[in-house]
Simulated assay, not measured.
Amino acid sequence: MIVGAAVGLGINYITKKNADGRSIIEDLTDNAPEWLDKVKQLADSTLEKVGKTAEDFKTNF
């Protein structure tokens, strides 16, 4: 029962309209593509750094 109440309150909170007439869930869905692009760029950058570090390690040993 407690978990159900917590879920209900959480859903109510994220779908409740704020002062500008938008809910948290609307803001999240609008910004999701932008955040996904940033995550992809970060992942690519990290993979490049790991690859470079691995190549440096191979060269030195």
Rank of each mutant, 00 (worst) to 15 (best):
M1L: 10
I2V: 05
I2E: 00
G4A: 15
V7I: 15
G8K: 02
L9T: 03
G10H: 01
G10L: 01
G10I: 01
G10R: 01
I11V: 14
I11T: 06
I11K: 06
I11G: 05
N12E: 05
Y13G: 08
Y13F: 10
Y13H: 13
I14D: 02
I14S: 03
I14H: 03
T15I: 08
K16D: 04
K16L: 06
K16P: 00
K17W: 03
K17P: 01
N18D: 14
N18S: 12
A19S: 13
D20V: 10
G21T: 13
R22L: 09
R22Y: 13
R22S: 14
S23H: 01
S23D: 01
S23E: 02
I24G: 00
I25T: 08
E26Y: 01
E26C: 00
D27C: 07
D27W: 05
D27M: 11
L28I: 15
L28P: 01
L28A: 05
T29M: 15
D30A: 14
N31M: 11
P33Y: 03
P33C: 05
P33T: 04
P33K: 05
E34D: 12
E34W: 07
E34K: 14
E34F: 11
W35L: 12
D37E: 14
K38A: 12
K38L: 10
V39P: 03
K40A: 06
Q41W: 09
L42S: 15
A43N: 14
A43M: 09
A43C: 05
S45H: 10
L47T: 01
L47Y: 01
L47E: 02
L47C: 02
E48H: 04
K49C: 01
V50K: 00
G51R: 05
G51E: 04
G51Y: 03
K52W: 02
K52H: 03
K52F: 01
T53H: 02
T53K: 04
T53S: 07
A54L: 13
E55I: 10
E55F: 06
D56G: 04
D56A: 14
D56E: 11
D56K: 11
D56L: 06
F57Q: 09
K58R: 13
K58T: 11
K58G: 11
T59H: 13
T59S: 13
T59N: 15
T59Y: 12
N60M: 11
N60G: 06
N60S: 09
F61M: 12
F61H: 12
